[in-house]
Design a protein around this nucleic acid. Sequence first.
DNA 1: AAGGCAACTTACCAGGTGGTAGGTGAATCG
DNA 2: CGATTCACCTACCACCTGGTAAGTTGCCTT
Lengths: 194, 194
Amino acid sequence: METKTRFIETATRLFAERGYYGVSIAAVANELALTKQALLHHFGSKEKLYGEVLQTISNRLMEDMSRIVQASENPREGFEACLMYFYDALQSRPDDTLVLMRELLDNKQRAENAKTWYLKPFLDSLCDMALAASPKRLKNQAQAFVVVYQILGAMKYFLVSEPTLVQMFGSKNWKAFTEHYEPELRALIAARLD
Amino acid sequence: METKTRFIETATRLFAERGYYGVSIAAVANELALTKQALLHHFGSKEKLYGEVLQTISNRLMEDMSRIVQASENPREGFEACLMYFYDALQSRPDDTLVLMRELLDNKQRAENAKTWYLKPFLDSLCDMALAASPKRLKNQAQAFVVVYQILGAMKYFLVSEPTLVQMFGSKNWKAFTEHYEPELRALIAARLD
DNA sequence: AAGGCAACTTACCAGGTGGTAGGTGAATCG
DNA sequence: CGATTCACCTACCACCTGGTAAGTTGCCTT
């Protein structure tokens, strides 16, 4: 595998665990037994490395998502399938989920330097899909956005809480929670679109 | 006001903005035109300062919540009022909300230290209330927990996104979102209990 | 008046931070 | 073959990090 790709994968894991400020570029490089200057050679700066991490996550989501959307027949089914796919994707890549959540919290600080909104197109397309899926229920863009955001919040907050909930209630209860969560998430989505 | 209290307030704001690793004790002290050694005099270490910040938030939240829980009469109405009150509380103190969210993400790292589950009694009582509020819909503890967690996720994720959404969509759109959010949150809660 | 103590201060430290400058050896290419 | 490019290196920089040591100042108690 290319060194640059390995840098991005390692950085994704470390940023997920400790956040942007909690990870030094030297720490990322050490994981691959390279020097931080090797990293700087490939990315130029820490901020650009972080940008590529976000871009990679964003690309992965957008590509898979557009595939799902095209495969669907009617807007409503496509939107629901898209959301459930998103839930599976977040569940199967917890590091991506954590990085996205951290980015949400951090980017007030970084916004001045990095003015790129990697996830905005993703949010926009979800809102458009929501409007198409439930034109009677959702009267305008703002309302569609709010409903989409409720659904995203319900799934992301739960997935991001795994370590805490396992420690709080034990892994047996956590397993029970996850088994209940998917059907309840479908029910939530349906309830929000009717 | 006591210097120590002012330190905690300033630290809460900065930790909310940049996270634990993103804030130096010197930065906190500078905000109050004091030296970092003044801070160390009061708290001993950065970790202890952070602990006091968490404790202060936890105390504030628990006090408010226990007051509300006692005041409820009808289980269903009491539960809904409780959730909406919680939404208002989070909304009125965005820094507290951000710090709690960050702690949720970080405590996989600090799992050893994080044995203070300040939110567990709160979660437990919410689950009990949910079961009492909708005994026909919710068959067991796990199901009640899942539904409660969906609602909490929907509100917390939205509130935590303010800085990002303001920059992404502008403050005018953000205002439109917040106006839609409260009624839609009530609708979400109702839909999840029927 | 004397002592103690809380609330600060300056001076300092070892180690880490992101980043620059200027290489080295190996592969590629005209 | 020589020139260039690539992927990496060592050396170095100015600044920042949390934390220690040792005062200094002014109020409170005895």
